[in-house]
Design a protein around this nucleic acid. Structure first.
Lengths: 252, 252
DNA sequence: CCCGCATGTTGACACAGGTCAAGCTGTGAA
DNA sequence: TTCACAGCTTGACCTGTGTCAACATGCGGG
């Protein structure tokens, strides 16, 4: 097996009954309701509401390389990543792939398709062995009737995603390849300090390249260009950034 | 003044008090509530709810070339186009422009910024003398508390927009210039008939070019390429499509 | 009626980024 | 230990699209 950059935590007891709603004693997975309460969508909801949603939530385990769903499949709910990494991608008629997003722990995906009651537009593949929660659409819809706060959250979350997608379009049409890479590296380095920062790419380089709408060859050249310019240093999957400000100013 | 492809209806009496919530007798503008009820957002809402929202709605008139708002401005509500045409665009630091959307009569914009309570991400400029309704955010928020149906509508509308934006990203990263132009022409020709169809570009060609992420020169060449290939015929702002199926199959 | 400017077309050329191909490197399996 | 292969790098080359510049066209205003 090739390099696996995000191995599952070593000590997870088998618990082979995947799809079980609530994790039991000793398992590394916290309570479903607790996990849901940590998301932007369900944070600070009433305990009862949360409980009912948790009851309609199932744990899903996917192994590296397996498909969670593909574009065109019916959508029965949305997903929350517990651990691992998922690749959301579009596919052209000729087979070309374009990675759209790489949700990791704490992130959700599939809400838009769920609320539209339309099939998925993207395919989802596990880049590492992953555990997710699948929240059934029906539960969300029934709670939505009752709780205006939940509606607020959903609206805010969708708007935020819309906002970010516009940013995506902006970066793709107005920025050069190098600028997109720089912007991406800066977005990974959430620390705003001017100190040396190390970022780890959340997936293999060819995946990141596609996420940035570049070929992996071009991405490689850009990275090495930045390295010879001295604004980053390459170290396998890690990228050392001596000074974030200098990198930010490096327009290309 | 240069060519104006979308002149305001000829016989609109002055009614110089712009910003008046409700249009009076004789004016070509229907009742605010009626206009709102026609949108996907507010359709089939209770009359009272609609009335309260209509009371918080103001008519806005903008002349061709003037800015409705620019990126970074605070957002106090969203807009519904009554007539005319608005250009929503992004601007790079170097001054390059990218047209994102061209909302016309019946279409809305600015919801995402409103719900996020964040400043606008795009600028809005009138491409023709236009009339719009501005719906105050406060009114939407208060009605949202009460009416779960409104919440549903908003969620559906945001999801739909998200869906379309993903399509935008797909077309930009997976399709060639010619394919994007063909796709755009087909989207303008809503008639699914195989009969000869005439579509009129909703804005000047340089604007459409930017909307498709092309230079106007390249757009011109693509259009003439399609014309010499025989799949379309050019006639100023009109484009005649002898057979939609043949155009659809024309990949490149 | 003519001038001027906005708009669009066309040509020559440049360049970012894609394609193809060869080779390197490190990890996992045998 | 060795092998095989996935991942990555590097080089040579190609092409789609952008840039720049010249010119056509047509509407609106003086």
């Amino acid at each position: 097996m090739p390099m696996n950059r995000e191995p599952p935590r070593p000590g997870i007891p088998g618990a082979s009954t995947s799809g079980e709603p609530r994790a039991a004693r000793g398992d590394a997975v916290p309570d479903t309701a607790v996990l849901l309460a940590r998301t932007a969508l369900f944070g600070s909801l009433e305990t009862e509401t949360l409980g009912r949603i948790a009851a309609a939530t199932a744990m899903v385990r996917v192994t590296r390389g397996s498909l969670l769903f593909r574009a065109g499949d019916a959508c029965t709910g949305f997903h929350l990543v517990i651990d691992g990494r998922i690749k959301l991608s579009l596919h052209s008629a000729q087979g070309a792939e374009r990675v759209v997003e790489l949700p990791g722990p704490g992130q959700t995906f599939g809400e838009a398709a769920m609320f539209l009651r339309m099939p998925y537009r993207v395919s989802a593949e596990a880049l590492a062995d992953s555990r997710l929660l699948h929240v059934a659409a029906t539960a969300v819809f029934t709670e939505l009737e009752q709780d205006p706060r939940l509606a607020h959250r959903i609206i805010a979350s969708l708007s935020m995603r819309l906002h970010r997608l516009v940013g995506e379009i902006e970066s793709q049409s107005l920025l050069s390849g190098t600028q997109r890479v720089v912007g991406y590296l800066l977005s990974l380095a959430d620390a705003p300090a001017a100190m040396e920062t190390v970022v780890r790419l959340p997936a293999l380089k060819n995946v990141i390249a596609s996420r940035l709408n570049l070929t992996h060859e071009h991405f490689s050249r850009i990275l090495h260009g930045l390295a010879t310019a001295g604004v980053i240093r390459l170290d396998g999957p890690d990228i050392r950034i001596p000074d974030l400000e200098i990198l930010r100013r490096h327009s290309g």
